[in-house]
Each structure stands twice: as C-alpha cells, then as structure tokens.
Design a protein around this nucleic acid. Sequence first.
DNA 1: CCAGACGTTGTT
DNA 2: GTCTGG
DNA 3: CCAGACGTTGTT
DNA 4: GTCTGG
Length: 286
Amino acid sequence: MCGRYVMARAAGDLVRLGGGMLPDETLELRPNWNVAPTADVPILLERAMDGDGAGASGGGEAPDGEVRRELHVARWGLVPPWAKELSVGSRAFNARSETVAQKPTFRAAVRSRRCAVPVEGYYEWKKPEPGAKGADGKAAEKQPFYVHPAGAGDGEGPVIWFAGLYEWWQDPEAKAAGEDAWVLSTSILTMAAPNMEAEDPLLAELGELHDRLPVPLGAEAMARWLEPGKLGSAEEAELLVDEVCAQAYGVASGWRLRPVGSAVGNVRNNGPELIEEPGEVQERLL
DNA sequence: CCAGACGTTGTT
DNA sequence: GTCTGG
DNA sequence: CCAGACGTTGTT
DNA sequence: GTCTGG
C-alpha cells in the first residue's frame, strides 16, 4: 500500500517528465521526503478544453477538443463531494482497485476524475515475524523500507506515476457563507502485492514486504488512465482498472528497495537523510 | 420511513 | 483500543 | 502510513 | 448523493 512517500522534485521537472503538461499557476511545491496523508501533493490530470475555451490555468487559449495535461496541487486523502468535513479524506488516501468502482467514496471519481500521482519513491513498514526478537531480546520492531525506481539517483532520474483519483469538495460552511473555497483532493489506488514466490526477485521482495501494492502506470497505461470523459458504467470503470492493474507488476519489477532508519516514522522528520540506508554503527545503536 | 455511514490497513 | 493530526 | 492523544474547568 | 440497517 502507500501511506508515506517522497516527492522532492521541482514542478518544472514534473512538467518535463510528465510529457509537456502545463503547471497550475498556483503550483507551489516544497521538497518533501516525508509526504503523509493530508499533505498537499502534485497530481497530473488531463482536461478536455471545451465550451468557453478560456483556459483557467497556465497557458492561454486552447481550441475546443484539445486535451491538456495539467499539474495541480491536491490534498492527499480524497474528500467526496457529500462530505460534511474535510477530515473524511484522511481515511481515504488509498482506494482498493478491487472495489473502487462500487464504493460510494470513489465510484464517481473513478468514472470521471482519474489522475496520476508522481512519487520519487515510497515507504513501506515491514512487520516483524510473530515472535521475532531483536538483538536486545525484546520483540522485533517494524522496519521501514524505501521503494524506488532502479538507478534513480536521488533527485534525478524517473519518477513513479501512481494511478490516482481526484475530487472537488466545497466546505458546507464556506458555501453557506458565500465563499469560494474549493478543495482538490486525491487518492492512490492499491492492488494485491505480487506473490512471495514470484520468479522475478524484485517482485518476490515486494510480496514479502507487504500484501498490498500501490498501482504504478507505464506510459501507455497512463495515457489510457488519464483520458478525460465520463465512463459509461461501473463495469467500464472496472475494465479500465483491470487494465492498469494488469501492467502494474511489469512496472514494479523495475523498482528496488532498501531498509531505512526509523526516523521516517515521525512526520516531523523531513530531509534527504531519511532515504539513506542506515550505517552498521547507527543500526547497532538503534 | 429516517438515521447514519460512506475508508484503508492489519490483526485475530 | 481507537481516533485524529500530520 | 506512524505518532500521539485520549478530559474538564477556568484562566491567560 | 446514495445505500444500508433498523
């Protein structure tokens, strides 16, 4: 699954990597090595220019029918339109691919508002084997790992694009007060992790790490996933979800993972040192 | 009919 | 144990 | 996801 | 908004 990740790139990098999309004018991104639910994160979405043609963000006129990729900032944790409070989103930062087309919280978004969430890598906490003991004889503690694209030097190289959803929400109180306070929010899809016995060693590692996997998009799947327009039915949405899940392990097999220090557990800690492998000395001291 | 939930993870 | 905040 | 709070009255 | 449980 995915409940914590790294996104330290500049918006300009994401524009380049995502394929010439226009950054939202309001886009302000701070490097973040410890992105947690409720944080503001960049998302990539496609929008069909229609009607007034007055492009609201970042780039002047566009003829009707043109599809644009745009980078926006969203709150991580999808807030459905009917929510009474923003906090509803803090428990919807992942959406199960198996049920996303049926769940009240996600089903409208999966038909009409799909996006891609760029990450440089994500964290996963591996549970100790039951009864496992640490060096001190006490119960072993969960171990955080950093999962990232192979060969990605820190701050360079490819990013992972996770399949995501977005939704717009207006605070009922703001609405009553006649204010124009809309919140864009997002969620990341998950699926079953690869089997621990998988032939591909990296997939086997992922299977041992956790039983859920955030769904990564290859270039082709991303193009399909982002296509704007409302899908005709929940069944149609399920087919598209199945399609992207079918290519996910192929993308994930190009990842690598490494153990990192326990500091990442606390969201107050934030810096490039979080993704460094702890040295042996440090490990002994822990 | 109204009231209340609407989610994921993991653990037992 | 369970919920909220980051 | 993990960490940290989990309560009241009243006062600054 | 829409579904489920009572």
